[in-house]
Design a protein around this nucleic acid. Structure first.
Lengths: 196, 196, 196, 196
DNA sequence: GATGAATGAGTGTTCATTCAT
DNA sequence: AATGAATGAACACTCATTCAT
């Protein structure tokens, strides 16, 4: 089967809209069902439970997210360029989808610990991409060899994430993608070999 | 007894323990009361409602947190040293209080939007400290003048926060304070004047 | 089954029984649900909240009450006869339904001001019937023209209500409908033209 | 002891004010204590419990009420005149004390069954006065001998009470004592001997 | 007598999930 | 496959009353 059942995506898209517009705690299953144009019970033919909707939502959206970022990265040769593409694409993909930005940066974080652990599993795919860029940079000599992978990863993800969250909390007032260059600069200065 | 409001602190400390051990959504008022050794109703003599316990908890703990960091910073003269003290103290204060680390990094983030907005207000005090260090560094010429304050702030807070969260999610297995030096290096390389 | 909204009436009837047997303040929603043979949550599919159950109960029962009285009255031609039918039917309808009598005369009066205001709205339908009889009596010359409508209404309702309440408080020991004649006499003597 | 402790009356007067201004269900003991200018615990030195405050309030106020009515009645010789004095005094005493009118007509009726039973005990004193007037009227021949005492009592009390309640519910907009004459007329026409 | 801090029992309502149709 | 009526567990908060001071 090439295509998931249309209702599957229909429900996930409804969930993004309902959560973005009502907030996590006001996103009842019945509201999602209504937005999707199906009966409450129908939800349970496609998802095990409510948590499964949210995890699936994250997997689905993050899967596309990572795919698009990887496509972009493959076009670049240097690690620094790859890193720039990652930041720029991350910013522009969320700037293009206001609802998704709200859901991933604010609403889904209110989920309970268990759900967040499963979301973290999905996030690992993203962090792997980051890791590959850093490791590649070290192999080609672009980045310091004594740069700790975990630390670099935490800085890249932490900074990007905080930057997007601040932007969402400020009601997405300013242009996010245009911040990519400056963020990128901050990273690579710290990653390069120390010059005597 | 000299203690000012023994019950007030008693209840806040109980809340930290109950939330850390049971999770945000399993931290019922009655559980907090029991842990504090008072009746349910007594809680409401010191706090307006459940949300008020959590906001007060954050204010109280974060207030002490900021105070201690500021004390440490004042002893240093250069911006780079101040920044190091901030990171090191941030890490060590949370490493010393495992329960508090769990509560601030994982559990309190599950609170609803309104509560998080009030928590963000408290956080501004911390971010102000960060801002002052960066601005001072620019005035003394330690840091680049074209460094954007907001970006620097997002990188510092985002990286520190992500580093602590990763550490908590890994069950606080490794030593956090010893990471301070490497994190600090990453920051200052990006903040310094570009060398030709 | 032909019944329109079986559960709706089922719940209202259960409420009458529970309130009559336990008293207003001991009539918890869960008790009403149990008596009705439904789950607690089911109540809220048919009623907005607990107050809505009580207002609906009063509307439903008082609606039938007024309907039956109006049917009876239409069969009579003179105002005096209509008034007699009103009294007699009022008494007999409550004498037939001991539970309802307790609920309307004793228990529902303990409701808060807001609820009683809404109950008074419903009562206006009854008072309108009274008004129509008095006015008709004045038009046909049976009753004095200088009889004040509001006063007559207060005397009729006040006396009937007090008579029923006394009867309920005396545990409905004596026969209520047989009092109708004497009550009626008291009214019409006061309503008639003064004889010189 | 000629005079009850001043605090006893102080608390009762505070209760009347608090209940009239806040409603029965918002008249907490602590609010009454504050209004009376005493500590919560002090209330319990003068009253067994909250219910006791309300019963005492009713006894105290109704006692004065009955006393004053009896004084007025004694000045009259005929039963009809006595009845008129009763009505007029009842109306004017409540018209003079707006707070008390609200408390007796609206708020105290929200009390639970047990409290109302005890209030009814107090009311009996009032009803005895009514009974004496009616009986005296029958003995002197003013009123019909076949007039049933209970019925006459119910009509007199029911009508007066309903009249006052309507007036309170209409925010005491019109003059109540001036209604006494018309109410009195309605009664005596029904009480007199039938004229052929 | 007077205080007021502390107590703890009690309940309306929501909403994820099920299952007969 | 699709429906949607029915379910029932779970919890923050109030306030009359007590009692050590």
């Amino acid at each position: 089967m090439k295509q998931k059942k249309p209702k599957y995506r229909q429900i996930i898209d409804a969930a993004v809209i309902v959560i973005a517009e009502n907030g996590y705690h006001q996103a009842q299953v019945s509201k999602i069902a209504k937005q999707a144009g199906v009966a409450d019970g129908t939800i349970y033919l496609y998802f095990k439970n409510k948590e499964d909707i949210l995890v699936s939502l994250f997997q689905e959206k993050m899967g596309i997210f990572i795919e698009k970022i990887e496509e972009e990265i493959e076009l670049k040769s240097s690690a620094a360029e790859k890193l720039y593409s990652l930041i720029e694409k991350h910013f522009s993909l969320l700037a293009e989808d206001h609802h998704l930005a709200i859901v991933t940066q604010l609403e889904l974080r209110q989920s309970n610990k268990e759900l967040r652990l499963r979301i973290n599993e999905v996030l690992k795919g993203y962090l792997n991409v980051v890791d590959k860029i850093v490791t590649a940079g070290q192999e080609t000599g672009e980045f310091r060899e004594d740069l700790e992978l975990r630390l670099a990863r935490q800085m890249i993800f932490g900074t990007i994430d905080e930057t997007v969250t601040t932007w969402v909390m400020n009601d997405q007032k300013y242009d996010l993608p245009s911040q990519a260059k400056k963020v990128h600069d901050l990273f690579v200065y710290g990653f390069k070999h120390l010059e005597k």
